[in-house]
Amino acid sequence: MTAAAEQSRVWTRKDLIGLEPLAREDIEMILDTAPQLLAVSQRESGIKKVPLLQGRLVVNWFYEPSTRTRTSFELAAKRLSADTLTMNVSTSSAKKGETLHDTLFNIEAMHSDIVVIRHGCAGAARLLAENHPSSIINAGDGAHEHPTQALLDAFTMREHIRRSRQDPNATLDGVRVALIGDIAHSRVARSNIWGLKKLGASVVVCGPSTLLPPHIEKLGCDATTKLKEAIDGADVVYSLRIQLERQQKCLFPTMREYVRLFRIDNESLKAAPPHAIVMHPGPINRDLELSSEVADGPRNVILEQVTNGVAVRMAVMHLLINRPAFDTA
């Protein structure tokens, strides 16, 4: 790599709020930094730690219950040798208590370097990023974005394609991804649409008409209510978690009928090409949006997503603090 190209691969942003504002190069910088950090977790020596964030403080600040994302961030920070602090706040108590800004002022008074925030309100991460010096990582804000999830998804897709095509430089250009489920309430869907489009993939979203938000196709994806149509020709079938509460809000009649129309199972996957993989952000509702035969079957890469999640989050934190990308290309 030339010196000029090397120089261009320096992270310049303070925060990671979403994938919408990122350029393809930004996203690729993260994806290209992840493999070396993935290797840290897979060391034969068993010593799964590097000192890249030694002496730094990473605060995980969660307003919504989360196990997977929170532990993934925590582990990522620990494997980079950062000190970590986790604050679980219930939104209802926060409403009565201090403001979001005041809480962050307090966190920053303890000299935090990175603040990872999960919040039920869209825009919360950006509100903080624009008003505070800390590096903010959005771990999910309402139905807006969940950038690290989409990054680990893109990384997993890219790794899979590189392996199956035996091409270490393969990209997501031309790859077809079908996102299935509750698109309206999904930050995972929005971040994936932004990220995948920037990486050259094409996206189709599919779900009940009541769970497709207005003008979603203006984000640059196709939209359909027919599962078969979405899966047909998809290289990746990505199932989203369906929440039971939606049924009580009159968004679909019964879980039974949702399963009938939108479940990913061996039957519905017949429309997919043989090489298609199945993904899910977790936690899965076994036999609801995803049948057990698929969840446990050869096409699924769900646990790979979890493993890669730690590496991708390590890459994000490393870049936010240390700036230069690792070159694995």
Binding site: E20, A122, G123, D141, G142, A143, H144, E145, R187, R190, P213, P214, H215, I216, K218, L219, K249
Partner: peptide
Amino acid sequence: MEDGAMNEGFNSTRLGLPG
């Protein structure tokens, strides 16, 4: 509406805000 915060349209979809 349910917890509506802004006009329902492309921008509410993009920002993930209830419309």
